[in-house]
């Protein structure tokens, strides 16, 4: 009887270890699953070009976010895609819809972390897009909101080139009468480029965009 019990104990112990191992591998698996699906989706993002394709990718990022609820990156990309779409479209109504979506996803991301430089950069971009809808009415309000977001982004990570780059783009397209133009944008592009040269994302999934565009815009600033 004792022997049986001992055996049973042994078996239970083994079962326990096994279960523990399974759970561990499953969770490790889940972790690598996140990375896997993120890099897969990022690749799809790189290959997408039409609004339909981009929305499909954004939806996928949102689905990832619905599973990995403590990750801000998938929400960042979902919001980022809608923000890009809002810049691209000329239709005011459509623009508003994209911005609304970008902002609602952004709000969720901010609930996960409030100390992420990239999120503030993107928030600044959303404000820039809002500004573009009606510059005369919205310009002042969202212009300074955008500036504040970029400042916050820089304070959270002084090495992040993107807040400088986005500010540079905004100044670049502002008429000279309002303090914009190539001349005023040049130092910002230079600062952004300097940071791009040394910037290393925390891991391959982190935002790492803008360098090429910044380079070519810097050249066009210099050439004139």
């Amino acid at each position: 009887m004792k022997q049986v019990l001992k055996n049973k104990n042994k078996r239970l112990k083994r079962l326990f270890i096994l279960t523990a191992v399974i759970i561990l591998t499953l969770s490790l698996n889940a972790q690598s699953n996140f990375e896997e699906i993120m890099s897969e989706t990022l690749e799809e993002f790189g290959n997408s070009s039409t609004p339909e394709e981009m929305i499909e990718v954004a939806n996928k990022f949102e689905r990832i976010a619905s599973v990995d609820t403590s990750e801000w990156l998938p929400l960042y990309y979902a919001s980022f895609i809608h923000c890009i779409l809002s810049f691209r479209t000329q239709d005011a109504k459509q623009k508003e819809t994209y911005i609304e979506k970008a902002q609602s996803v952004m709000d969720k991301a901010m609930l996960i972390t409030e100390n992420e430089s990239e999120l503030y950069t993107l928030q600044g971009m959303i404000y820039q897009s809002l500004m573009a809808i009606d510059p005369i009415t919205n310009g002042q309000i969202y212009g300074s909101k955008a500036d504040n977001s970029f400042k916050k982004a820089t304070s959270l990570n002084p090495k992040n080139p993107r807040p400088y780059y986005m500010q540079a783009v905004s100044v670049f397209y502002t008429p000279e009468q309002f303090g914009g133009g190539k001349k005023s944008a040049l130092p910002l592009f230079e600062k952004a480029m300097e940071l791009y040269e040394t910037f290393q994302p925390e891991n391959p999934l982190y935002p790492n965009w803008g360098k090429e565009d910044c380079e070519s815009q810097l050249e066009s600033c210099k050439s004139s």
């Binding site: 699953n33 699906i37 929305i55 499909e56 939806n59 996928k60 949102e62 689905r63 990832i64 619905s66 599973v67």
Partner: peptide
């Protein structure tokens, strides 16, 4: 619209 199975990455647009 985003259509997916809750708790999975699985879905469609």
């Amino acid at each position: 619209a985003n259509i997916y199975i809750k708790g999975t990455y699985n879905g469609a647009t």
